[in-house]
Write a protein that binds this DNA or RNA. Structure first.
Lengths: 148, 148
DNA sequence: CCATAGGGCACCGATTCGGTCCCATTTCGT
DNA sequence: ACGAAATGGGACCGAATCGGTGCCCTATGG
């Protein structure tokens, strides 16, 4: 249903939590799991993935944890989704790789889908982690206007 | 991966094919399946669904088939996706139904997701079947720019 | 040297997806 | 009136994906 997985959803929540704290100090998976009201194994799994994908920097050993790899304004929703689910492509057809579509005759669909895909991508690229982290207090007026 | 199912993909192709023909005359599932290079059972299943959802009008009996229920300019990509997959919602959180999110504390995510969701929705709502059907010949310059 | 915390991965049950098939019903043509 | 041609509505099945847990390893601070 054009929907992202729950794990991606959780990733957005976790990233938001991390972004909302002091950028320099690490936060443990246990802490974050509690605050996000997620089971520890789940949170751990997701944080590991986000680390491997370069969105988080991890500190191993006792008193370890995670912190953002970049500033909260440099990370977008699209980045997080890509880290969790791979390239953003609505269909096989709409991926950037020039994979040839098997539906030759009827493939104006392809070109249009590519366009749709781009619109979605842009929308996701436009929202930064900083906005999400700040949304709790401010950024309420930013919601009143439509996007596209 | 924020992707729609293959059946939805097929639905877009089939709808495009139907829209590209004379609006008044019906086309059989067999015909359409051939032109879309899809197995007949698949095409049939999808066409039935689109009919039930009100996007197509069916003519039963011999020499039967399908035609558009509305003008090609009135039907959008979003309509087709909704017919195939239900309401467009990136996450449980972002649906329009005011379903309460379980992640209370961290739920600025909710509001932001709602915004993302809306952007996606708007993008899909903006593309009509008429555009897709016409894209084969024109609308090529709209593609010349890279995607992401 | 040990408790703490992340790294990696295998694994499992449940759901969804892609696809096929069957049978009932409708309708045109002869 | 009858039969071929089409749609209508499901049931059904194998395969892939999803959500979630657990285990064992390595790193590190006290």
């Amino acid at each position: 249903m054009i929907r992202l997985t729950k794990q991606t959803d959780y990733a957005l929540v976790l990233m938001t939590l991390i972004a909302a704290s002091e950028p320099s100090e690490v936060q443990s998976a246990t802490e974050l799991a509690e605050r996000a009201r997620l089971p520890l194994p789940m949170a751990g799994k997701i944080l590991k993935l986000l680390g491997r994908e370069g969105l988080l920097v991890s500190q191993r050993g006792a008193a370890g944890g995670y912190r953002l790899a970049q500033g909260a304004s440099e990370t977008t929703v699209a980045d997080i989704i890509r880290a969790m689910e791979g390239p953003i492509a609505l269909t096989d057809c709409s991926s950037d790789s020039g994979a040839v579509c098997s539906l030759e005759e009827s493939c104006p669909t392809c070109s249009t889908l590519r366009r749709v895909n781009r619109a979605v991508n842009d929308a996701l690229e436009a929202i930064t982690l900083a906005e999400m982290a700040g949304a709790k207090h401010e950024a309420r007026e930013a919601l009143s206007e439509p996007i596209a």
